[in-house]
Structure formats: C-alpha cells, structure tokens
Design a protein around this nucleic acid. Sequence first.
DNA 1: TCTTTGGTGTGAGGTAGATCACACTATTCG
DNA 2: CGAATAGTGTGATCTACCTCACACCAAAGA
Lengths: 188, 188
Amino acid sequence: MYSTLREHIEKIMPLTDEEFAFVEKHFSFKKFKKHQFMVQQGELVPYNYFLLFGLTKLVYTDPDTDKEYILAFAMQDWWDNDFQAYYTKTRASFSMVCLEDTQALCLSLDDFTALRAGLPKIEHFFLEKVMAGFLSAQRRILSMMTSNAQQRYEQLLAQHPSLAQRLPKTQLAAYLGVSRETLSRLSE
Amino acid sequence: MYSTLREHIEKIMPLTDEEFAFVEKHFSFKKFKKHQFMVQQGELVPYNYFLLFGLTKLVYTDPDTDKEYILAFAMQDWWDNDFQAYYTKTRASFSMVCLEDTQALCLSLDDFTALRAGLPKIEHFFLEKVMAGFLSAQRRILSMMTSNAQQRYEQLLAQHPSLAQRLPKTQLAAYLGVSRETLSRLSE
DNA sequence: TCTTTGGTGTGAGGTAGATCACACTATTCG
DNA sequence: CGAATAGTGTGATCTACCTCACACCAAAGA
C-alpha cells in the first residue's frame, strides 16, 4: 500500500528505510466511494491527498449558475487538492469529488509541516512536484490563449489518452472550458 | 544591492550572515536596457532572474502570425523566467523582454543546484515561492474559464493596479488574452 | 526639426462558441 | 424488472469577441 508512495517519491529522491518509515507514519489511508466529496467547497480541508486508486476531479461550482469548472483531474500516483485552502487553513474554493471509487493516502497539514521539518530531503521532492505542477498550469494558460476548442481537445487526447477514455465528455468539456454541446460537435 | 534579495528571502526563511554570504556568492548582477531580450525564444536560458528594478514580460510569439501572448509580467522583487527551459537546459519556448530599463540578480542552473545542495533551507524558500506561483496560475486558469474580458480586466486592475498604470493597454490585452481593440472598447 | 515608431479609439462585418430546446440511448439502483 | 438518472447528439438562435481598416496623437531618435 505504501510501496506506491515510496516508489513515487524515490523517482525524485532516494530514501533510506528509516527515512521512509518516518515519511510513512505521517500518512493515513482512506477509501472513498464514487460521488463522494473528499473536499467540499466552503469547508475546511483536512488533508492533502495522494491517490492510490481511482479518479477524482477538482471543481469550482458557480454558486449562481451551478455551472461546473474543472481545474484538474487526478488518478493513481497523482496529488490533488485545493492547496490554497489546505495550506492556509481557510475554506475551500473548490470541491474534490470522486468520479470512481478511490483510495488515497492522507496527509494533514500538521503532519506535512512535521514531515518537512524532520526530513529536509522531502522539501526537495515537493519542490520538484510543485514546479512540475506550475509549469503544467502555465502551459494550460498558454493553450487557452492560443488554441481553439478543437485544438485543445486534441491536445488533451494526445497528452492524457487514458483520462479521455475514462471520463464522460461532459466532464472533459468542463475541464476544457467549452460547453458540452460544442465538444459534442467537434471533429465532424 | 543584495539587501533586497536578503529581505525577500527572509520574509519566508530567516538566514544567518554566513548563510546569506553563501547565497549571495551564487548570484551575479546585470543591467538590461528597455527592449532588450533577457531570454530569447528558441535559445538556451543561461540564468534565472530576480529583478531589482524595472519591468519585464514573459511572452510567447506565434511564429506564423507573429501574435504575442504574455504569460507573466515581473517587476522589482519578483522572479521571472522560462523555468521549463532553464531547468531542463532546453531551448526557450518564451522570450523574456524588458519593458523598462531593468536590473537583475542572475542565477545559473549550476549555481542554483549548488545553492540547493549546500543550503537545504533554501529549498524551503523556493518551495514557498513556486507554490505561490502555482496557485496564482490556477486562479488565472479559473478566471479565464469563468470570466469575460471585462471582468478579467477589472480583476487585473484590482489585483495589480501598479502594473496597469505602467503598461500600455496593448500589453495588458496580450496578457488577458483579448484583442487590443476589445480592451479599448471595454467599460463604455 | 522632422520622421519614425508606439499607443489608442472606433466603425463594419464575420465567426467560434454559448445557450436553449428536445430527443434518444445507456446505466444505475430500489 | 421498471424507473429514475446520466450521458450524448443535433438543430436554431444569439452574442462576445475577433479581424480588418483607417485616423489620430504622443514620444523618441537621428
């Protein structure tokens, strides 16, 4: 169960057995059902999540129109959360919802802080992860500015073919920032 | 000259005099003129830049249409770069151009690596910085999905009034992902 | 000083994509 | 099994924004 986490970390930063034992004890394991909210817009965010199985979305719901805007999907081996709210102990702007039954390793902010303080190596790991996330967000911004719906859809299919297969088009549309009708009409 | 850098780092991570001396010696100082390219699309990226004075943009130019898409502005006390290219020693996808005469502290990748290895504290500092950058990019993505041109312009004015004053509207339009004509017609 | 370059406003017309509306087919679940 | 719910396709409008075109003014450089 924790071996996935260890392999994930060691792709970036090798650890001794004692070091990983120290890492491991800060996490707890949790299961979630499809449709379950792991984080709820407007509530506090107890944990940061590392996914072992399943599929989740990070979504902003406009309180007036009820329209959904998907910021990110996550699956096994990915981290996902409303980091802003988690890290500043404020109320979540987004919800994190299971699109399939999901299993995750959970890290509270106190445990995160203790982990960083007790094992500086782990800062290196998270720096790499967050940097990759930042660069990917930057690419997405550029893609939203330079490309039309059709091109963005094709880019998504090319970059994440597995996501595109597991997800209904409605969800893909909410991620691409396009109406589901428009997505349905593409590649005619 | 380096005191700006020290204050900037110590907002997040206090340093002893020896530690800062170690930090300082990895940077070099450089001046740039308005219109000068600090990073050129298609070339390698020698340095990461911490700005002391001036104003820069990080811009992608479509090779076919010559249209500009601005990913970020930076001014004193900000970091800016094509990090992807810098960090992977690949050719830049973006240019970084001075919009005013600019002074910067420059950090080569080798120096960056040496700095991280020699002073683990600095990983903590960069993790905080990159996290803030990631969250800001995420907010921008959401704003592009939920808001129209008018609203995005107002958000920019509210969040960065100083930027809006120093920059011509053409540049703001290229940042907002709107044509300059549309921006000119807003708030009528 | 005169000429170039940069910045801005505004009209006219075109279009990608939103919205609304309805129909049809899978799935899920009591 | 039968009923609700989720997912998809498609037509008919509507609109925010783009593109092209031209005119004007300010600043900069030779």
